[in-house]
Computed example of a mutant assay.
Amino acid sequence: MARILVIRFSALGDVAMTVPVIHSLATQYPQHEIIILSRGMMQPLFQRLPSNVRFINADLSGKHKGIRGLNRLYNELKAMRFDYVADLHNVLRSRYLRYRFLLSGVSVAAICKGRLGKKQLIRRRHKVLVMQKTSFQRYADVFSALVCPVRLDFTSIYGAGKGDFSQIASVVQPKGTDKWIGIAPFAKHRGKIYPIELQEQVVAHFAANPTVKVFLFGGGKEEQEVFDRWTKKYPSVTSLIGKLNLSTELNLMSHLDVMLSMDSANMHLASLVGIPVVSVWGATHPYAGFMGWKQQPDHTVQLDLSCRPCSVYGQKPCFRGDYACLMQITPRQVIEKIERIIS
Rank of each mutant, 00 (worst) to 15 (best):
W293M: 01
L216R: 00
R48A: 02
C318V: 05
E200R: 06
D141T: 01
V91F: 07
L77V: 02
P44N: 06
Q201L: 05
G62V: 03
T211F: 11
V237E: 13
A265N: 13
W281E: 08
I157M: 08
T238N: 07
M17D: 05
R123E: 15
V19W: 06
K175W: 06
I329W: 15
Q295C: 01
G114A: 13
F82C: 00
M17S: 01
K294G: 04
Q47W: 10
R8M: 15
S156W: 15
W281R: 03
Y323D: 03
L246I: 00
M291Q: 14
V53T: 01
S264M: 11
A26P: 04
K192W: 06
K192I: 02
E197I: 11
E197K: 08
C148Q: 13
V312S: 10
F165C: 10
Q333C: 03
F319G: 01
S51Y: 04
H126I: 00
P235Q: 11
A58C: 04
K233D: 04
N251S: 07
R39T: 11
M327E: 15
Q201G: 02
Y74H: 05
E222S: 09
P309M: 08
A2L: 09
C325A: 02
L250Q: 06
R340M: 04
T330A: 15
S94K: 01
H89K: 06
L198P: 13
N251I: 02
S38I: 04
I183P: 08
R308E: 14
L146C: 00
T330D: 14
T238M: 15
V226A: 12
Q199D: 07
F143A: 09
G220L: 05
E336S: 12
D59A: 04
R8E: 15
P276S: 11
